[in-house]
Design a protein around this nucleic acid. Structure first.
Lengths: 107, 107
DNA sequence: TGATTACTTAACCGAAAGGTTGACGAAACC
DNA sequence: GGTTTCGTCAACCTTTCGGTTAAGTAATCA
């Protein structure tokens, strides 16, 4: 159990951070590129990324002057297990997630 | 989509609130009984319960002078779907959850 | 009726969250 | 070497969080 549920859930509670995670689902990204779609300073994004890092949800590797952000979905495992203890839900519906994702990125 | 992921994840980020949810897994409880194991005022627990209620994770029904708290696990569904969009995890391991729960309640 | 029980609300407090701007360091470009 | 780019850090500000105590309301008990 690498990272506490406290940190993971707290990281997921912010819409900006959830959006960042969804962006990283596509591919690894540099910090500046992560920041681009948001109406927010680079420093703010940098803070969000460090919170995601503390929760273990992403890792960061610096190559040259560019710092690359990589999704680490395994950090979600403990949280998922915890939540599923409360009942069985439908089998994963990826279509629903895709739709939700599209909706979210649009707003 | 009844309750926002913001509220659900924020509610889950606090260990006291997660412990309350686990207690309610056993059975419905009155507010005073929920508060009993915690080293915290009743007012504090009342606030935690209202946060859980706002997230849709519990419902409360007043019968006489007693207010009963009931787990509403369906509120976790959207959050679970969201998280599972990041990858398939092992099938639910209830035994692991039970062990974790026991550990948690002991500490 | 009077006292007690069950709970919420209000006011307050310190600490943390989420944002800003400005200065800085390190790598890359010309 | 000078300048630009990438990113963090420090200081600050406002709002929210998580707790407290004190007071208030509503139902029950004796």
């Amino acid at each position: 159990m690498a990272h506490s549920l406290d940190h993971v859930f707290a990281a997921l509670a912010d819409p900006t951070r959830r959006a960042i995670l969804m962006m990283l689902l596509e591919d690894d990204m540099a910090v500046t590129d992560v920041a681009e779609p948001f109406d927010m300073s680079l420093a703010a994004i940098s803070k969000h990324l460090s919170i995601l890092g503390r929760a273990g949800l992403i890792s960061q590797e610096k190559r040259g002057r560019v710092k690359w952000c990589k999704l680490e979905p395994d950090a979600l495992r403990d949280a998922t297990v915890w939540m599923q203890g409360f009942g069985q839900f439908d089998p994963v519906n990826l279509d629903a997630f895709e739709a939700f994702l599209e909706q979210e990125l649009k707003s």
